[in-house]
């Protein structure tokens, strides 16, 4: 049970955006997708989220094709955080996070508890009554993170939960980057399958159980960060020469350019 991309290809407007993608987001594990700009990371994410239909192949959520799930039931298992959040109305942080409970019927009291805990977890509790439109980029991103966390806060009986995050650390300072990784790890430890799109290879190496390297719409390498991150591959995919060392503290690969 998990989120599976089964031999996916995507052609849009005459371009091959994705070709022959096979990957599995395993519950309890963090899968990170890395790759240069334009490699198809966001397209892959949108296919996995059900936003775009694959031209070939299929996406399976807990054993059934994504499109065969009832939309609300699907939303209770699969939460997606896009990169940009175009909200232009003055909702408070609490109201935004409450929207994450839209697909649930757990009642106002429970929802409110979950919202409070999610805000707390994302270090956004102090934003509670502040207006979204007046927040900084990092604050907005944390509130949106809390929203998708609230969406899959508790296990559901229809299947495993999957969390998909597109560049969740993009507008964060160091401490909030660390916080995000800790949150991702915590959700994975609770049985959630996490798919992460990130730019920073070192960040990916530190938090991911499986690393997927995309290049020109294909998977160039896939496996444990230790096995995947090598000078030759990075040179070939990113066109950058570098040195791969061990992180002195935890022994994960460290890419130094």
């Amino acid at each position: 049970m998990s989120l599976v991309a089964d031999d996916i290809s995507l052609h849009l407007a005459g371009f091959d955006l994705l070709r022959d993608i096979d990957l599995t987001v395993v519950p309890g594990q963090v899968t990170a997708v890395v790759g240069p700009n334009g490699a198809g990371k966001t397209s892959l994410l949108r296919v996995l989220a059900g936003d775009l239909a694959a031209s070939h192949g299929r996406v399976l959520l807990n054993g059934n094709p994504l499109s065969s799930w009832d939309m609300e039931a699907r939303a209770r298992m699969l939460a997606v955080l896009p990169q940009h959040a175009p909200l232009e109305f003055p909702f408070t942080a609490r109201e935004v996070v409450s929207l994450g409970r839209t697909p649930h019927r757990t009642g106002r009291v429970r929802d409110s508890e979950i919202v409070t805990e999610a805000l707390e977890l994302a270090d956004a509790r102090y934003l509670d009554k502040r207006f979204y439109t007046q927040m900084s980029g990092g604050e907005k991103q944390r509130v949106q993170l809390a929203r998708v966390l609230a969406q899959i806060w508790e296990p559901v009986d229809t299947g495993e939960r999957i969390l998909v995050l597109d560049e969740p650390t993009a507008s964060f300072d160091l401490s909030h980057q660390q916080l995000t990784l800790a949150i991702v790890r915590r959700f994975a430890d609770n049985g959630v399958g996490v798919l992460l799109v990130v730019h920073d290879l070192n960040l990916a190496a530190r938090c991911a159980d499986t690393l997927v390297v995309l290049s020109c719409g294909r998977i160039a390498a896939q496996g444990r960060p230790d096995d995947v991150l090598h000078e030759a591959l990075i040179e070939q995919v990113f066109g950058v020469s570098c040195v791969v060392q061990r992180h002195p503290a935890d022994g994960t690969p460290l890419v130094i350019t």
Partner: peptide, 20 residues
């Protein structure tokens, strides 16, 4: 009402929240 609230987040976001 609830649907419109979710809609303010964006069309894709509303879809991720289970709205047709």
């Amino acid at each position: 009402s609830r649907v419109l609230n979710a809609f303010l987040l964006g069309e894709s976001e509303a879809r991720y929240l289970g709205i047709d």
